[in-house]
Amino acid sequence: MNKAPLLLSIICFVIYRLLLYFTHNIWLSLLIFLVPIGLLVFNFSVRKRLSYSNWFLSPRNFLHERRTHTFESELDTQLLYAKLLEVVDNLEFDLLDHDENKLKILLGASINFLTWGENIYIQIAPSSNGSMIEFTSVTLFGNTSWKRNDKNFDSFIESFESSLIV
């Protein structure tokens, strides 16, 4: 469990109490909470673009919980890319962005009771047996995905496997 966002919340609360103690101005003190709110708004505004994938996928970004699964497929990269776009149509995720040249697909899981939603990055790369698929599920905000990252992968792989029955 990534404890950094929890730590950030505690730090914000401590600063809020300190500001309140020294300034006695509640509105000025509450401004400190613009930091986490701003982060959430920023994440929501950039989530739909593949060009911001580095922000969510960087190991230095400690504010998100991410889970990566890698698996191989016998299909060649172009056919697999087309197949995955077809599979995504039947999933509960939204297709947010895709890049045929870079063989990247970005999906979004909607907000639910447990999380603010997740971004799912799929990267296809050629391999000796066909293609290699890297599936990464990242929380938009929060220190834990409550196993939603793993469930997203299970749901995806189940749909992909069953789609190979024609």
Binding site: E74, A82, E86, E161, L164, V166
Partner: peptide
């Protein structure tokens, strides 16, 4: 009524199974 992608995969013998209806 089967997608081109699925038929391409079938053509390459890389499907897991084929339905009798297909």
């Amino acid at each position: 009524g089967v997608s081109v992608v699925n038929l391409s995969i079938l053509k390459q013998s890389k499907v897991k199974a084929i339905r009798f209806s297909t």
